[in-house]
């Protein structure tokens, strides 16, 4: 039986008069790599903010492991937040702490784990994302873009969350680093069974995913295998798939 970790039903979001989501539905399976794509201003970031409980929904339901998150008590919300990892677009970390301290802080704050384990776990996570252990003592401002992304991923993974949200993880990376990052994400999903949801503009990243959801005009117009995008009857998707970049990628595959 397929278990869904996140289910969004008839989601409606508005900014004043402007309606962003007009009854949007999507389902994210446990342990899959899920991508959300859409044009600029399609409401991807709004959706992410709603999934992260940073914004109240104006209608519809968001179910996390079968529970409606709009109806949770504050205590349940706090518990739920511990199970969610997130990496924002500009790889945000606490700038006054070193990378190591960032990871240790999150671990101790969330689960009150002893110092030695927290330090070892920080080293393990840095190793896992492929960073040199020296990064442990470095401040986020001392890192290059690619290292910063990886460090931020290590922070997001610090307490082994059930679901990880990545907002445009490969933006600003060179193609080789971007490919490394995509491979890393894929490996994480395959080995640890974590669910990863990424919002992306990077067409090459889509080929690594299990499911792609396309947001257009406030609705999900397609949800399924990335290869199925070619047969979708939607203007935006047609435009996307007819781009030269997309064609070349498919041919290359």
């Amino acid at each position: 039986m397929v278990r869904y970790i996140v289910e969004v039903e008839n989601l409606v979001s508005k900014y004043g008069e402007k309606v962003v989501h007009k009854g949007l539905n999507l389902k994210i399976k446990e342990g899959e790599l899920y991508a959300i794509v859409g044009g600029s201003g399609a409401g991807k970031s709004t959706l992410l903010r709603e999934l992260l409980l940073l914004r109240k929904v104006d209608g519809g339901k968001i179910l996390f492991k079968g529970k409606d998150i709009t109806k949770l008590s504050q205590k349940e919300i706090d518990e739920l937040k511990k199970r969610i990892g997130v990496m924002f677009q500009f790889s945000t970390m606490l700038s006054s702490l070193t990378v190591g301290q960032n990871i240790i802080y999150v671990i101790k704050k969330r689960y009150n784990i002893d110092d030695k384990t927290a330090i070892d776990m920080a080293k393990i996570k840095l190793n896992l994302v492929g960073l040199n252990p020296d990064v442990f003592f470095m401040y986020p401002s001392e890192l290059s873009g690619g290292m910063r992304k990886k460090a931020s991923l290590a922070v997001a993974l610090s307490t082994d969350p059930d679901i990880l949200f990545l907002d445009e993880p490969t933006s600003g990376l060179d193609p080789i680093s971007a490919e490394d990052f995509d491979t890393l994400v894929r490996t994480l999903v395959d080995t640890t069974g974590i669910t990863i949801v990424q919002i992306t503009h990077d067409l090459a990243s889509l080929l690594f995913t299990d499911t792609v959801a396309v947001i257009s005009e406030g609705l999900i117009v397609y949800e399924g295998n990335p290869n199925g995008l070619l047969n979708v009857e939607n203007k935006w998707v047609k435009n996307l798939t007819s781009t030269l970049r997309f064609r070349r990628l498919l041919n290359g595959k």
């Binding site: 080293k123 393990i124 840095l126 190793n127 896992l128 252990p133 020296d134 395959d190 080995t191 069974g193």
Partner: peptide, 18 residues
């Protein structure tokens, strides 16, 4: 096998040289 992989991935703890 996937648990075995997690165990082997967390076996390696790099030494920090401060």
């Amino acid at each position: 096998p996937s648990y075995e992989k997690i165990i082997s991935m967390s076996k390696e703890i790099p030494q920090l040289s401060k």
